[in-house]
Amino acid sequence: MKEHVWNEYEVFERLVSEKRYAELSGDELKLVNQFITNEQEYDAFRMSGLDMKGWFRENPVNGATDKTLSGLKREFKRAHQPHVSIAWWKVSIGYAVAAIVFGLGGWWLGQSEKPTTLTRIEQVLVPDTIYVATKPDTVVREKIIYRDKPVILTTTNPPNETPVTKGVSMKEKEELDKLLVSGTE
């Protein structure tokens, strides 16, 4: 079959399914005859097409069960949810937000406060009152207190190195004698 004929195959298909051979116009017959040789062949094509449609109608395939869809939905949820738990997700988001807020706040405060030059403030007392000298109204009497103060007198002569012999008085002698006689103190 020539290649250009295939361009019109869809038209041929449509004619076979819609019209009988006798119903075809001149142009349609011309087109159909590129694919088939006679009326019997056309009828066989047409009948087989009708049988085919009947077969599809009589052998339907029912739709998938709801179980399949519910299983797939579960899988869909699993595939699209994050792997961390919601609580953990919230906490991490909270931390991130707090960090951003503090960071921005610090940056903003640093930006708004302009650097100031340090100045040294000194308090200098400047007398602004003039006192007029007045006579004191209290008379303080001075009292001279004498205190003993040891005075070391130095002599030029060295002290006498001979031991000093101490004598016994009469009274002491008497008492000693008494002791000797009694033998007791």
């Binding site: 290649e3 298909e13 694919f35 062949e41 087989s48 097409g49």
Partner: peptide, 19 residues
Amino acid sequence: GTVKSRLFYMRKQLAVELS
């Protein structure tokens, strides 16, 4: 073109076998 020719020859075979 191949799809069309395959369809045509399948239909032809089907027509012959069924008739």
